[in-house]
Write a protein that binds this DNA or RNA. Structure first.
Lengths: 216, 216
DNA sequence: GTAACATAAATTGGCGCCAATTTTGGATAC
DNA sequence: GTATCCAAAATTGGCGCCAATTTATGTTAC
């Protein structure tokens, strides 16, 4: 059992180990297939074994890591079928609420979204992988919140994490990143114009484009 | 901290403590608001404290129980907003795949479903609360599997658990149970007839009827 | 009777420890 | 060189223990 670099990552006070490990998985610091040794994670995140165990158990419940009894945990390999199925689910959900998003899009909401889209643009130019990724999440979350179903927002946020819809695989080329950025603005345009059909089309295209590239 | 009866429930070999606690929550043995004392659960399920803790942590991650630091865990109170939102999500998902269910409904699938619907009828007459509940789940799972998206089946199964869509609240009257049974058969009829619109209507009505009664 | 306080009892939270299991490295044989 | 075996080292898994915190109970004052 080998594999990971033992860099100590300073624990942020408000984020527990689960979040830290998850972040490192999603940013590619802990690539697919990596064995996550408990004693290494203790050092990496400067925490205790019970904390590591809890984090790993939680991540295994989310099927981001796999537990192999007596051997440990490793990061799941990307699964094309899963990614595809989850994209399908996201398409279903996010297009189904397009009409509610349009109905609830007030000028201040539009303004907030524009700000977040610009922030994404900015992070594309100047940000770290993580900042970029989180800017994307922030934009999409704000968009989804328009529909007024908190459980749905949480659910989508949750299932996004289940696949390699992550920075290391999501945006392979500059062109793709820039297209995503344009699509964000186009979604806002459709919202503003009250064009539900166009919004649906954009959302679906956005998700499927990302999903296709998420396959390895 | 008080509240639960200390009956020892024989642990089934293949089900871990998480499942056992979940089962007791869903069947009403551990009602909403109940404080789940670790030492009581140890005795109840004849297991060790670490196992209890893991189970409780998992259930808290699923938001079925709430963790209050230094005080313990208690079963969440039903939340009408959550139940409603989750039903909305289920309607979106399950009606979206109606066409795929219809497309994939082969005669042997129909036959299997009829068997499961009859089994539900039988459990209505003769079964325990849990058997009845599981017969319902079995029927719906088989139906959903027709769509060919395993992640979606798993997801729906998972989100159903998040609310009081459980035996103690789902079926309050005999009439309601019997209507559910009829609806199961009608869904199969719609499948067999290839009537996607009717299937959608039935699914939506079925979910919403259940959700309405799930509120307290 | 209620409110405040102190103490004992009960419970949670987390750590250390060690048995069980796996991995690694070295020695030996071919 | 490869294959096999064995012992040492490393790691996982789970238990026991106890400090920290909360709850319950009893006493005192009003």
């Amino acid at each position: 059992m080998s594999d990971i670099h033992n860099e100590t990552v300073a624990p942020a006070v408000e984020r527990d180990v689960t979040d830290l490990v998850l972040q490192d998985i999603l940013t590619g610091m802990l690539p697919a297939g990596t064995w996550l040794k408990q004693i290494d994670l203790e050092r990496r995140y400067d925490c205790t074994r019970p904390e590591v165990r809890r984090a790993l158990d939680r991540l295994s419940q989310k099927r981001l890591v796999e537990h192999v009894p007596n051997r440990g945990y490793h990061v799941y390999q990307p699964d094309g079928r899963r990614a595809q199925e989850i994209s399908d689910i996201r398409v279903i959900l996010e297009t189904a609420i397009a009409d509610q998003m349009v109905a609830n899009a007030k000028p201040d909401s539009i303004e907030t979204l524009r700000g977040l889209a610009r922030h994404f643009d900015d992070m594309t130019q100047n940000g770290t992988v993580l900042e970029h990724y989180e800017a994307n999440l922030a934009f999409h979350k704000e968009l989804l919140l328009l529909a007024g179903n908190q459980e749905l927002v949480d659910l989508i946020s949750e299932i996004r994490q289940r696949t390699s819809s992550a920075p290391v695989s999501q945006w392979r080329t500059r062109a793709r990143v820039e297209q995503s950025a344009r699509e964000h603005h186009l979604m806002i345009d459709a919202l503003e114009a009250g064009d539900t059909a166009e919004l649906r089309r954009l959302i679906e295209a956005h998700i499927r484009q990302t999903a296709r590239l998420g396959q390895r």
